[in-house]
Amino acid sequence: MSKKTIDLWVGVFVALGLGALFFLALKVGNLLNFKEQKNGYEVMARFDNIGNLKPRAPIKSAGVVVGRVESIKLDPQTYEAVVRLHLEKNFQFSRDTIAAIFTSGLLGEQFVGLEAGGDSQMLKDEEWIKKTQSAIQIEKLISQFMFSKAQETPATTAAPSGAGVKP
């Protein structure tokens, strides 16, 4: 095996390997889109509860991904979660946009949904989204349901007795 042949094969191998790394990073890992987002703008929103939301979770409007969650912090004064949202610059939202935390599917990952309002002024970099809606927590739902059931129960037991009185 001559030096030239070895060089050729090693060159092909290394190029193929680096190509595969780029393929994984760009085509599979979507590195390019991530880079583009850096040219976007950031807005903040307060939530009472973010549920299972994580940094890098998608932000969707009408189901289309328009950005990513940049960071999540707790405001020590108000005990609310402050979420920084990174939005792509070609998507503009009105100032009365509502941000809500949804779950994809029944138990899937959580994402931030944006619902545009009718204000003619648009959100700018470092501005706050005023209207938010927290994540729905299954535990809360269940306890609310049980609580309302528990409240209903005396009412329903009272009703027949009341009915019994009426006639």
């Binding site: 994984l24 599979v28 890992g29 979507n30």
Partner: peptide
């Protein structure tokens, strides 16, 4: 592309 993160998934694999 939505699910695979280049840092958490691809880089960690590397």
């Amino acid at each position: 592309q939505v699910a695979v993160d280049w840092r958490n998934d691809v880089m960690n694999g590397v």
